[in-house]
C-alpha cells in the first residue's frame, strides 16, 4: 500500500514530465514538416542530441527525486512539511522503509523515462545499432542517472526543499567543471558515463564510471537513511 500511496502522490508530476519529455524529443520531427530548411549538419545535430540527452537525464532524475521524496503532496518548492507526516510517523513503519519506497518509486519513474529517451535516441541514430550495444548504452545510462538521482535524494533529506534543485544543479556543474581539469574525476564521473561524446555507442562498457556510479548510489542512499533515521519532527 505504501507504493500505491507514493504513486498517488507523484503520478501527475510524472505524467507532466513524461509528456514534456516526449514533446521535446518529438521536436526534430516537426522541423522538416514545417518546411523550415535546416542547414545544420548531421554530425552537429547529433552532438546537440547527445548534450540535450544528458541534461534531460539529469533533470529527470532531479525532478522525480524531488517529487517523490519531499513530503506528502506538496510541490517541490514549498518549504515545511505537511501535517500528515505526523500520521505517517505514528505508523509502525521504519523510516528506512518509508524512504526506500518513496525513493524507489521515483527511481522506477526515472528509469521509465530514461528508457523512452534512450530508445528514441537510438532511433535517431544514423547508423544501425546492435542489440548488445543498445543494451550497454541503456544500462550505463540508467546506472549513471541513478547516481544523480541518489544524490538528489540525499540533498532532499539534508536540506530544505527550496535548495534542492539549485543545489543539485550546482553540484553537478562543479563536477562537470572538475572533470575537465582532474583526470580522476573524469574517470568516475556519472556525467561522462552517460555521455555519448565520451563513450560512443560502439564503445564497450565503461567500467570505471559505471562501478563508480553504483558505489556512489550506494553511499548516497546509505547516508540518506542515516540522516532520516536521526531526524526530528
Amino acid at each position: 500500500m505504501l507504493w500505491f500511496k507514493a504513486w498517488l502522490e507523484t503520478r501527475w508530476r510524472f505524467a507532466f514530465l513524461a509528456g514534456s519529455t516526449l514533446l521535446i524529443w518529438l521536436t526534430p520531427l516537426w522541423i522538416p514538416a514545417t518546411g523550415v530548411h535546416t542547414s545544420v549538419p548531421a554530425a552537429r545535430f547529433w552532438m546537440v542530441i547527445q548534450l540535450a540527452s544528458v541534461l534531460l537525464f539529469i533533470f529527470t532524475a532531479i525532478f522525480l527525486a524531488g517529487s517523490g521524496i519531499n513530503t506528502q503532496g506538496m510541490y517541490t518548492f514549498t518549504p515545511g512539511f505537511h501535517g500528515s507526516m505526523l500520521f505517517t510517523l505514528s505508523l509502525p513503519i521504519s523510516r528506512r522503509r518509508l524512504l526506500f519506497v518513496r525513493a524507489g518509486l521515483g527511481a522506477l519513474q526515472t528509469c521509465v523515462l530514461v528508457v523512452i529517451m534512450v530508445v528514441y535516441i537510438l532511433h535517431l541514430r544514423p547508423e544501425t545499432t546492435s542489440v548488445l550495444q543498445a543494451l550497454i548504452y541503456l544500462t550505463r545510462t540508467i546506472v549513471c542517472t541513478m547516481a544523480i538521482y541518489a544524490f538528489s535524494v540525499l540533498l532532499l533529506c539534508v536540506l530544505d526543499e527550496t535548495w534542492h534543485v539549485s543545489g543539485a544543479f550546482l553540484f553537478w556543474t562543479i563536477v562537470f567543471l572538475l572533470q575537465s581539469k582532474f583526470d580522476w574525476v573524469a574517470r568516475v564521473s556519472p556525467l561522462r558515463g552517460m555521455s555519448l561524446n565520451c563513450y560512443p555507442i560502439t564503445a564497450p562498457i565503461p567500467w570505471t564510471p559505471v562501478i563508480a556510479s553504483l558505489a556512489l548510489t550506494g553511499v548516497f542512499m546509505w547516508i540518506a537513511v542515516v540522516v532520516v533515521q536521526r531526524k526530528e519532527y
Binding site: 500511496k5 498517488l8 506528502q72 505526523l86
Partner: peptide, 29 residues
C-alpha cells in the same frame, strides 16, 4: 506503534486519498 493509535492535533491525513483508500492503506499495515 503496532499497539498504539494516534490522533494528531490538526487531524491531517493524506490529501490524495479518499476515505476508503485511507482505511485500506492503514488496514494493510
Amino acid at each position: 506503534r503496532r499497539r498504539i493509535g494516534f490522533v494528531s492535533e490538526d487531524k491531517e491525513l493524506y490529501p490524495f486519498m479518499n476515505v476508503g483508500q485511507t482505511i485500506r492503506f492503514t488496514r494493510a499495515l
